[in-house]
C-alpha cells in the first residue's frame, strides 16, 4: 500500500494535466451536465489533495487519517521545539513549516471563495438597486425587466429573487419567437442557479490569477453552463430560433468589447451556434454513469485519505 501522502501528492499533481486535457476535449459539448460535474470534482479533489499532501508531510501516523496525523504532528513538533535545540528542533521546524504551508493553502482557498461570493453579492445588490429604479416590464417579454438602452443585451441577475433583464436594443433586434428562446435560456440559468456552479472557478482565478490553466478551466465551465442552458431552452423552443437569436445578439454592436476578451468570445459563440445547428447525440447513459463515477472517485480518494487512512 502506498503511503497516503504519496497518493495525495499524485492526485494533486495528476489533476493538472487532467484538467488541461478536459479543457481541450470536445466530448463535454455532448453532455455538458456530466462534464460540469467532473470539473467540480476536479477542482474540489485538487484542493483537498494539495492541502492533504502538505499536511501529510508533517503528519505522524495515527488512527484518524492525514488530518488527525497533521494535528498530532503539529503538537509533537511544538513540544520538540520547546524542549530545546539540536537535531530534534530542526526536524520540528521542518514539520511546522510544511504544516503551516498546508494551513495557509487551506485558508487561501476558503478565503477566495468567501471573497468571490462577497464581490458577487455586492455587485448584484447594486445592479438590483439600479434595476428597481430604471427597469420596467414589457408585454413582449413577460416576467422579464426591460432597460431602455439601444445596445442589445440579455442576461439574468441570479439570486434568491432572480431577475431576467432584456435591453430595448434586444427587443428591437429579435422577433417574438427568438425572444421566447432567449427567455427560456435565461430561465434555465435562474432555475438551476448555474452561477453557483461557476463561483468556485471564479474563486480559483482569484487565488491563482496568473495560472492560465485556471482561467481556461473557468472559461470552459462558463461555456458548458451556457450549453446546458441552451439544452434546457431546446425543450421548449426550436434550435433554429435560439441559434438566430445568438447570431443576432452576438453580431450586434461588435467591436465594443476590449480585444482581449474577443478571441474567447468568438470561439464560444461559434461552438454554441454550431452545436445548435448541427446537433450531436448526447453521450450514452453508460458513458455518463462512468463520468459521474470518475467524479465520485476523484473526491472520495482524498476525503478517505484525509479522514480514515493510517
Amino acid at each position: 500500500m502506498f503511503p497516503p501522502v504519496l497518493v495525495l501528492a499524485a492526485v494533486a499533481v495528476g489533476i493538472v494535466p487532467g484538467a488541461a486535457i478536459l479543457a481541450s476535449a470536445r466530448w463535454p459539448y455532448r453532455s455538458p451536465a456530466a462534464a460540469i460535474l467532473l470539473w467540480q470534482a476536479l477542482g474540489l479533489s485538487w484542493g483537498l489533495a494539495a492541502v492533504g499532501a502538505l499536511a501529510g508531510l508533517g503528519a505522524v501516523p495515527g488512527r484518524y487519517g492525514v488530518a488527525g496525523g497533521a494535528l498530532s504532528g503539529a503538537s509533537r513538533a511544538l513540544r520538540d521545539a520547546a524542549v530545546g535545540f539540536g537535531a530534534g528542533a530542526v526536524g520540528a521546524a521542518a514539520r511546522l513549516a510544511v504544516l503551516a504551508a498546508s494551513a495557509a493553502l487551506l485558508a487561501l482557498l476558503c478565503w477566495v471563495l468567501v471573497a468571490a461570493s462577497a464581490t458577487v453579492i455586492v455587485a448584484r445588490r447594486r445592479h438590483r438597486a439600479l434595476l428597481s429604479l430604471l427597469a420596467h416590464g414589457d408585454p413582449k417579454v413577460p416576467g422579464a425587466l426591460v432597460v431602455d438602452h439601444p445596445v442589445a443585451a440579455a442576461y439574468c441577475v441570479p439570486g434568491l429573487r432572480s431577475q431576467i433583464v432584456i435591453s430595448a436594443g434586444t427587443l428591437n433586434l429579435l422577433d417574438q419567437a427568438e425572444l421566447a428562446a432567449v427567455l427560456a435560456h435565461e430561465r434555465a440559468h435562474v432555475r438551476a442557479r448555474h452561477d453557483l456552479v461557476l463561483l468556485p472557478f471564479c474563486a480559483l482565478t482569484r487565488a491563482f490569477p496568473r495560472a492560465r490553466l485556471v482561467r481556461r478551466a473557468r472559461a470552459t465551465v462558463a461555456l458548458l453552463v451556457e450549453m446546458l442552458a441552451d439544452d434546457q431552452a431546446l425543450r421548449q423552443r426550436p434550435a433554429r430560433e435560439l441559434a438566430t437569436a445568438l447570431l443576432r445578439v452576438g453580431a450586434s454592436g461588435a467591436g465594443q468589447a476590449p480585444s482581449g476578451a474577443l478571441a474567447a468570445a468568438d470561439d464560444e459563440m461559434v461552438a454554441r451556434v454550431t452545436r445548435l445547428l448541427t446537433p450531436q447525440a448526447h453521450l450514452s447513459v453508460p458513458t455518463q454513469v462512468l463520468i459521474c463515477s470518475a467524479a465520485a472517485v476523484l473526491v472520495a480518494v482524498p476525503v478517505t485519505l484525509l479522514l480514515f487512512s493510517p
Binding site: A123, L130, V151, A153, A154, Y155, Q256, A261
Partner: peptide, 25 residues
C-alpha cells in the same frame, strides 16, 4: 447598468449571466 451587463472589463464575472457575448468585427 449596461456596462456591467456587457462586462466591458473582459473578465466575465459570476455576478450576471449573459445570453450571448459580443464578438469581434
Amino acid at each position: 447598468l449596461m456596462l456591467h451587463a456587457l462586462d466591458q472589463t473582459g473578465d466575465r464575472s459570476a455576478a450576471l449571466a449573459s445570453f450571448a457575448r459580443r464578438v469581434s468585427d
